[in-house]
């Protein structure tokens, strides 16, 4: 196996691991997870209950455990000095492009929001070339954003399947400037922006070999992440319970929850990553010249932050 790095002509051997059981185990876990989840969803639909959830949970556990040991091995290889600078760069490229793929995932949902607000919605409301004859189908439907009453409701009344939250139940009505809730997204913006700063401060601390600053700032970042998720939970609670704004309230609820929900999920992921980095820091990992694990997590965190800023702008403000 890999021994020392620098060899004579300035070339470092690239560490190619021997056989590994991790990938196939991770595959089996992933497969069981999605197969179980699919079964579970279909059981929900059919209002029966069966083994779906258990298969899914088992798969999830296999996957997580495998990933845990896989990462542990990768980390220990690195700590044993098997990784050349070149391999480290491969990890950097890998993380960078992974984040790009995440950007494109969000782009699909932002694209949907853009399309609905600029095309589909106005057409349904009778605007534009495609709205000329629309009254044949959705007579009296007026397009507004947020869409608090669906075309379905306007035409089918009580029989409608998609029931909007109703006027006055907008989470963030354009003209209401009172109440804690109204300011909640702003608070969340501040929290996330601050957390981007604190994770940067942690990085600076590490670079200066100031481990307590590193760990301290990292801890604060994780705490801010939790704070964000808590506020988002309050917001969802308010929306679902008090306002009746749900996934089923038509396109406003749909886009609102899908965008903020996937973002929240990514905050959770990023926070978990940072938490693991905190635990690793606690064990003495990372040095000022070798801290890619932490850097990767912090990039991810910055990415999550940027997505939020876009969300804040496109979902809450305009």
């Amino acid at each position: 196996m890999a021994t020392d790095s620098k060899s004579v002509d300035g070339y470092e051997p690239y560490y190619v691991p021997e056989q590994s059981a991790f990938p196939i185990l991770a595959t089996i876990g992933l497969f069981a997870f999605v197969f179980g989840l699919g079964t579970f969803f279909n059981e929900m639909q059919a209002e029966t209950s069966g083994s779906g959830r258990y298969i899914s949970i088992a798969g999830f556990l296999i996957l997580s455990a495998t990933l845990f040991f896989w990462f542990r091995q990768a980390i220990s290889e690195n700590m044993q000095g098997m990784n050349s600078m070149q391999l480290k760069r491969s990890y950097v490229w890998g993380m960078g492009w992974f984040i790009f793929s995440e950007v494109m995932f969000f782009a699909a949902f932002f694209g949907a929001l853009f399309y609905v607000r600029n095309f589909a919605g106005p057409w349904l409301g009778g605007e534009g070339d495609k709205g000329v004859h629309i009254a044949l189908l959705w007579e009296n439907f007026k397009y507004t954003w947020p869409m608090m009453e669906t075309p379905d409701q306007v035409v089918n009344g009580a029989k409608a399947a998609f029931v909007g939250a109703g006027e006055g139940n907008s989470l963030y009505p354009a003209d209401a400037h009172n109440g804690l809730l109204h300011w909640l997204p702003l608070y969340n913006t501040i929290i996330l922006l601050a957390s981007s700063v604190t994770v940067h401060m942690a990085h600076v601390g590490l670079k200066n070999d100031n481990r307590s600053a590193f760990k301290g700032w990292l801890f604060i970042t994780v705490a801010l992440g939790i704070g964000f998720l808590f506020l988002q939970y309050m917001e969802y609670h308010e929306a679902y319970v008090d306002l009746g704004l749900t996934l089923e309230s038509g396109i406003y609820g749909t886009t609102f929850f899908m965008l903020t929900g996937f973002h929240g999920f990514h905050v959770f992921l990023g926070m978990t990553m940072l938490l693991i980095m905190l635990l690793r820091a606690q064990k003495g990992h990372f040095s000022h010249e070798d801290c890619f694990g932490f850097e990767a997590a912090s990039w991810y965190w910055h990415f999550v932050d940027v997505v939020w800023v876009c969300l804040f702008f496109f979902v809450y403000i305009i």
Partner: peptide
Amino acid sequence: PVLAGCVTMMLMDIHFGTSFFSAAGGG
């Protein structure tokens, strides 16, 4: 990832009552 987003929207429309692809809900 855009394809993943696309099938995710389908999944939500099928199982969770969203209305990405339904005019009745504004999609």
